[in-house]
């Protein structure tokens, strides 16, 4: 299956997507109590996405929307229940729950919390050299040089090599995490809330660094976050998830400028800070429903200001709007 049709040459900015997600679904079996009945939890359902090489797709949604489950399937940490993920035309999973890509073919992931994603007992030298020891191995003699190169790329001095994670600030640690993700020269980076644990002034440094690296190395990003501002800033395309499904997608500036789906609209209003004393309101009442007990029809209808009877009866499909966009709503 690795004998794909994709030529191994570097397609700089071709039309063929670097990442393709086809009809992806992930379910978990859970018990409500120790002796309770087994139930199926649908975490991600019917997700189709593609990202052209060298661009960024932003994914936003509340906790419980399934965005991290999706990220984990793209990076190979979770096997999908249905559907498939293709990176440069190669399937990430073999269909039997195993990863079918070599270490240097898949996506790499940058996690949210740089405090828990680095082994505190390893010096930076080992943290960055470790990925180079996995097949296909980088010869020992070349590893040191590669580690230096990585540190330089993320803006850390060579002297950082012999330090341990606790000797760095949060922002510097996130640089180390990024360097480690780059070690295998991936073409796709999955960034799962990479700046939410950092201070504002440091956030902008890391966002700028990610943008620079993208230009320099031609990287493709799947950028996940719950803050519309930072995701919007990073992304070319934007997808909005709610309860496991994509409810709206399209070019980032269009989605943020003229949202179609009422959920997207609500997210935007929640982040546009109109002071309460000037009449600022709460756009969205209630909380995201449990994925164990999703509403019938449209998943958003329980919190939607536009909801009518049809929303409970029929699930709206993602349909094209304005040629470049998709949205799933009966009323817009």
């Amino acid at each position: 299956m690795s004998t794909s049709v994709q030529p191994p040459v570097q397609p700089a900015q071709t039309e063929s997507p670097l990442l393709q997600i086809e009809n992806l679904r992930k379910t978990f079996t859970v018990r409500s109590s120790l002796l309770g009945a087994r139930r199926e939890l649908v975490a991600v359902d019917s997700v189709n996405l593609s990202i052209p090489a060298g661009s960024t797709l932003g994914l936003v949604g509340e906790s419980g929307s399934g965005k991290s489950t999706l990220a984990n399937m793209v990076s190979g940490l979770l096997a999908p229940t249905q559907g498939q993920v293709l990176i440069e035309g190669n399937r990430v999973h073999d269909g039997r729950g195993r990863v079918s890509l070599r270490g240097d073919q898949g996506a790499q992931i940058v996690f949210q919390d740089p405090y828990s994603s680095l082994n505190p007992r390893m010096p930076v030298r080992r943290l960055l050299a470790e990925p180079l020891q996995v097949a296909p191995r980088v010869p020992r003699a070349e590893r040191e040089q590669r580690v230096k190169e990585l540190l330089d790329q993320v803006g850390l001095p060579e002297s950082a090599m012999d330090k341990f994670p606790h000797e760095f600030s949060g922002g510097q640690r996130q640089r180390i995490v990024i360097a480690r993700a780059l070690a295998r020269r991936p073409r796709l980076l999955v960034c799962d809330e990479p700046v939410s644990a950092l201070d504002v002034s440091v956030q902008s440094q890391i966002l700028n660094l990610l943008k620079d690296l993208q230009k320099e190395l031609g990287l493709t990003y799947l950028f996940i976050g719950h803050g519309l501002e930072s995701v919007g800033f990073m992304s070319d395309q934007l997808a909005v998830m709610y309860l496991g499904r994509i409810v709206e997608q399209g070019p980032a500036h269009q989605v943020l400028g003229r949202p179609v789906h009422p959920y997207t609209q609500a997210l935007i209003t929640s982040s546009e800070a109109v002071p309460f004393r000037d009449g600022g309101t709460v756009e969205l009442q209630g909380e995201i429903p449990s994925p164990l007990n999703p509403p019938s029809g449209c998943v958003f209808r329980t919190r939607c200001p536009l909801a009518t009877d049809i929303c409970a009866e029929k699930r709206p499909e993602l349909t094209p709007r304005e040629s470049t966009r998709l949205a799933a709503c009966h009323h817009r």
Partner: peptide, 16 residues
């Protein structure tokens, strides 16, 4: 100025 805003068209953020 270091925080991104909605509809930000800046190529880079100013950072401290």
């Amino acid at each position: 100025s270091s925080a991104p805003r909605l509809g930000d068209t800046r190529e880079r953020l100013e950072s401290i």
